[in-house]
Design a protein around this nucleic acid. Structure first.
Lengths: 217, 217, 217, 217
DNA sequence: GATGAATGAGCGTTCATTCAT
DNA sequence: AATGAATGAACGCTCATTCAT
């Protein structure tokens, strides 16, 4: 059990150092100094620098993944909307509960290591796929307005990511509950006073959205 | 200006290399190889690696800054809403016009260099301040619904950032125009069908938002 | 041309250091110190430690290989025996001409690096094959007495290797010419006074030597 | 003696590991893993890595030394030649009986450790001295032909070393008996058909051999 | 005696930066 | 201005050895 404790201790300290300095600026020396162990001890528990980071990221990503529960339309007690709100809440809760990893994942999303970059990219792809699918279902049920699901998904995802980022950087200090409510309010009605932009509701749902191709490369 | 050309050439190649490999994986050797000059030549034009990157970032950030025009309420020809839409459009246009820098700024937002981190942070702070101010004005004019301006700002900012990110990564392929419209639609009415969440409009504007303090550390 | 000189200089110094300390005890620092260049300079010319060593070994082995000329039975001016003697002489000459590499190859013949071990082994195998073949031809021509060619080859090869080893270690100080003569005398008549062991000449040549299998594992 | 058993067990496993991987590639971890003991246990029985290796080498060298019995001219039952043959046989027997140590001693003869290098060198010097002395006696008795005893000794020694090397590497598979006979045949008459090189017997014995000094350094 | 976690000196390698030509 | 060889600080990692339990 002692060994497992050391491991855990090193993981925590590593997380802190990575969060504070970023992957590249975080030296093995920083981690072991913070943990007050010798350099060799680190390699007793982890194969190399990349590995401990990967373990931290894997753990965090799986916690996020577990926080997202696929929405069930036949749930009697929780409406799809309530389930969506719960998902948002749980993701925010996980993120706020581990500010270090949240910061790393949101700010150092690439350029650390080819393998690692791929992993993070795959994670986001999965999220985006799930979102697109949920939005399609939402559209079919009349809960989500018409529009390109990729774009709608990006808009929603971006909102949540930024809320998380500013929270872990201390610029927003609300609770996960309050923020989840804010996000839901945002998704439900934007931030502008209703009626300003004409009638967005009138649009018909389309499976193939008429997105014009971009002009510039 | 032979010298100025060299400089410019190096800047372009450096941008490409940085965009492709990220700051740390981009070696001076890669840059000079792309530019077909000797290694020493690089240092004839730039003090060091950090500096050329900083110059690229500075240039990009100032182009973004120039794209954002403070909204004037007394503009006869353009409503505040139209001005907002123009801002969104121009920012998207700048971002899509320089996918390399956009990618770097959105994915490697930290951990490159202490000085550089500070600069990016300062840029975002400025944007956020401007946003908060604009939102306050919007609330006063009845254009923006009530709510914590920091949170509202983050929600809006995040949407745009994510749209940009997914665009430069090729997962969204609409034009800046179309995307600006989508963003405006989002800000105006969210993505959910109206009326689902009760009456969000009924809330009163509050300068001090009643955000509950977070439970977990 | 300057670069090639540096390379050559490093090769020479590396050879000396390797010869003096052996592969493992030879540190990059030793090599660069001996060459009076900075550590980085080494890596400007060679990929890594293994590589410079490999280059030295490859070069030496190919010089040895070139010294060995396949014996031609139809050579009018040089009898097969004279050709054999020339081969022995040239091999000794190459070995004595590069005592450092000779010492390394004869004393550190294994345990340096898996790739390198394989290379040396392959070299010796090739030599042994050539020897066995030459001995077969010699037997057919009546120049070589009957006996297991592998064993005969090993006996001859071992003599030459030991002569070389003791020469480069300073315990034997004769010239390559004199040593070649000694080796030929040895191959021709051993070291014992003739007639002591009965009639070794009476044996018949056998292609399949009757070597008893060993008793102990 | 529980402790003595442990020691012995570790020695055997260490010998196997050293033989398989060579001194440097053999890690303490490999040895204790083979022996199924904890790492600390190793240091309960041996001072350090060099020591256990030294012990193995010492043991092997002394077994070789014991196999070599000084030739007695006044032995009624065994002629000097028969005693020589017995020596060769016993050395081969010891070598073939411990292929691991034989391989190490013949292939990693240097570069392991300064102290150890010295010890091996001293052993070979002793062998060579003994050989030179025996050859002198042989010459005086008319059993050994004239010639530089150092060179003659090297030629004989090299033959035996190579036979051993190729045997433990599996390229020669004869028994120690058969190989001893082959070696004796070789020492008695070389490998060439008699009479090919003129009359080597005609030379007179000289205490100071007329070896020309080498031309190249 | 046995264990195995902890130690830390040491080394190979990288790469931004300098400078003689 | 241009070149590219040279520099050396810095860092990740290994592994023989120690020591508390």
């Amino acid at each position: 059990m002692k060994k497992e404790q050391r491991r855990e201790q090193l993981l925590q300290h590593a997380r802190d150092v990575f969060a504070e300095k970023g992957y590249h600026a975080a030296k093995i020396d920083d981690i072991v100094a913070q943990a007050s162990v010798a350099r060799g001890t680190f390699y007793l528990h982890f194969d190399d620098k990349r590995r401990i980071f990967e373990e931290l990221v894997d753990d965090f990503l799986s916690r996020i993944s577990l926080a997202i529960v696929r929405i069930r339309v036949d749930d009697a007690t929780n409406s799809p909307l309530a389930q969506l709100r719960d998902n948002v809440f749980r993701v925010l809760e996980v993120g706020l509960g581990d500010p270090g990893m949240t910061k790393i994942l949101l700010k150092n999303a690439a350029g650390l290591d080819p393998d690692f970059d791929r992993k993070v990219r795959a994670f986001y792809r999965a999220i985006e796929e799930l979102l697109a699918l949920s939005l399609l279902n939402g559209q079919r049920m009349g809960l989500v307005r018409a529009g390109d699901r990729r774009v709608l998904g990006a808009l929603a995802l971006g909102s949540i990511k930024e809320i998380l980022l500013q929270s872990v950087e201390g610029r927003i200090t609300s609770s996960a509950q309050a923020l989840a409510d804010e996000v839901m309010r945002f998704l439900a009605g934007g931030i502008l006073t209703p009626g300003l932009l004409g009638e967005p509701v009138a649009r018909k749902e389309r499976d193939d959205p008429p997105t014009k191709t971009r002009a510039h490369s």
